[in-house]
Amino acid sequence: MSTTATTSPSGGARSPRTATPAGARPVAFLRLVGLHVRAQFLETVRVPVAVISAALFPALAAFFFVVPNEAVAGDPLFATQAISQLGVFAVMSACLFTHGTGVAEDRGQPFDGYVRTLPAGAAPRLVGRVLNGLCFTAISIVPLALVGVFFTDATLPALRLVVAVGAVLAIAVPFTLLGLAIGYSLTSKAAIAVVQVVLFPLAFAGGLFLPPDMFPGWLDAVSTGLPSRAAREVMVLATTGEVGYGYAVPVFLAWVAVFAAMAVVAYRNDEGRRFR
């Protein structure tokens, strides 16, 4: 391509910019990401049911199942563990719903195709979605943490709080990827069903509702191989320093790799189908 200097047009002030693509500076990537985060956040937040259920479910579960149980709520370690495992559930649920059903819904909407014709490409939308998932994770974890602090003996010193925020971000990674894999593979109706079918059994078997100490031996054995259980151990390690089982981190990382591969395959297939 020949490089031509872009000079201002001589024909009248009304004339819009006449820069060539080579001369017109595209909008900065971070600004584009900001646009997409904002639009997606507003879109979700205006459906109050989604926000309220995300914000209240983990907190309510803590309030009804942890707080009345004096043996757990009155013990700093048990209480912190119980709140932590519900925190993992909050992350899982926010990520799977935002990305699983959210992406599937977007794909069904003509607006998604339109956004692809804007000078931005697919990346800002995807990055925006991931950040949006984290926003909703925060929305569901904060009320839970408040219940833990005010109604139980759960403790989280400042240093542990920082580590715990890191753990939340780390745990969000595999479930974001799993959500994307579901969202890019299925229609929105199927995605809602699959997210629910995946979410609750995985949460229960991963020890997010009942502590794994209460599991029969066989379930505990199966549980240690699950992403939800591994995530629980990472979270509990971050908040209490208690080590659950030795191979939790390798199991966690293995699931990150598996879900990443699934997400990439699903994304590529979808691109190939719709934008080939």
């Binding site: 595209p26 639009a39 459906v47």
Partner: peptide, 30 residues
């Protein structure tokens, strides 16, 4: 960057306000 297209009428994000959609799309251009 010098291209403008129309979304399908039925495909606008229904919970976004008119001004928000305009700002969102406009924000993609210099």
């Amino acid at each position: 960057i010098l291209l403008g297209t129309t979304p399908q009428e039925t495909g606008l994000p229904s919970t976004l306000k008119v001004r928000e959609v305009v700002d969102f799309v406009g924000g993609h251009y210099p």
